[in-house]
Nucleic acid binder design. Structure first.
Length: 212
DNA sequence: ACATTAAGTGATT
DNA sequence: AATCACTTAATGT
C-alpha cells in the first residue's frame, strides 16, 4: 500500500513530521471509485477528507432537485464545507461526487479542531484551502452570472481537464448539460461551434481540448 | 442484422 | 437559450 507515499508527496512539504504521524495513525484511508457520492446535501459531516489523488466534483442543488456544478477539487485539497462545519453548522450544503477514482484520508472533525491549535502548519493549510475554495466559489458565481453559455462551457472543459490531468475528457453531452444546468441540444451546438473554431475535437463519449 | 444510445440539425418560441 | 421533432452516427448484442 502506497498511502504513505501519497500522503508524503501531497502533504509532506506542508506538515511537520509529528502531524504527519498523527494523520497516519488517526486518518482512515478510503478508495472511492468514479461516480461515488461522497457527501450529499443535508448529510452531517463527521470527517474531513484529504485528497491523495483523483478529483472530486462539488455540486449544488436547486429547488427542483437539479444539479449545478460549483467546482472541482484535486490533489492536496480539502473540502471547505467540512471546515465550516467545525464552526457550528454541521449539515452539508453541497453534494460531492468522485470525478475519477479517488483515494483520500478521512480525518474526524474533532481532530481537525484539535490540530488547528496544536499545529501551525495545519492552521495555515485549513485557512488557505478555505480561501482558495472561496475564490473558486466566486468564480463559479461569476461564470453563471456574467458568462454566456459558450464561455461557461469552455471554462467547464478546461476545469475538468485540469482536475483529471488529461486533455481527453470522457463524458457525454448530456452529462455536461446536467452539470451546467442546460439542455443537451444546447451543449451539442456549442461544442460543434468550438470544434469548428479548432478549440476542441469531438468524438463519441470523448472530447479533446486543443489549446489548454 | 437489429436495437440502443449518443450526437447533429432545422424550425419554433 | 430552450424545446420539439427528426436524422444520422456509433456501439453493443
Amino acid at each position: 500500500m502506497n498511502m504513505l507515499e501519497d500522503l508524503k508527496v501531497n502533504y509532506g512539504y506542508l506538515f511537520e513530521d509529528e502531524l504527519m504521524e498523527e494523520i497516519q495513525q488517526i486518518g482512515q484511508y478510503m478508495g472511492v471509485p468514479e461516480g461515488t457520492m461522497i457527501i450529499d446535501i443535508g448529510d452531517t459531516i463527521t470527517s474531513m477528507p484529504l485528497i491523495l489523488n483523483g478529483a472530486i466534483k462539488v455540486l449544488r442543488e436547486d429547488d427542483k432537485g437539479d444539479d449545478l456544478l460549483l467546482y472541482f477539487i484535486e490533489n492536496g485539497d480539502t473540502c471547505a464545507m467540512t471546515i465550516t462545519c467545525c464552526m457550528g453548522d454541521t449539515k452539508s450544503g453541497i453534494r460531492a461526487i468522485a470525478e475519477t477514482d479517488t483515494e483520500l484520508i478521512m480525518v474526524p472533525v474533532q481532530k481537525m479542531q484539535e490540530w488547528f491549535h496544536k499545529y501551525k502548519s495545519w492552521q495555515t493549510f485549513v485557512l488557505q484551502s478555505y480561501h482558495t475554495r472561496m475564490n473558486e466559489l466566486l468564480e463559479a458565481v461569476d461564470a453563471i452570472a456574467f458568462l454566456k453559455m459558450d464561455e461557461r462551457l469552455l471554462k467547464y472543459l478546461r476545469d475538468k481537464a485540469i482536475a483529471n490531468r488529461d486533455e481527453l475528457i470522457n463524458t457525454t453531452h448530456q452529462e455536461i448539460a446536467y452539470d451546467l444546468h442546460t439542455s443537451r441540444v444546447v451543449v451539442s451546438r456549442i461544442l460543434k461551434k468550438l470544434e469548428r473554431d479548432n478549440q476542441i475535437q469531438l468524438h463519441r463519449n470523448r472530447i479533446k481540448i486543443l489549446n489548454l
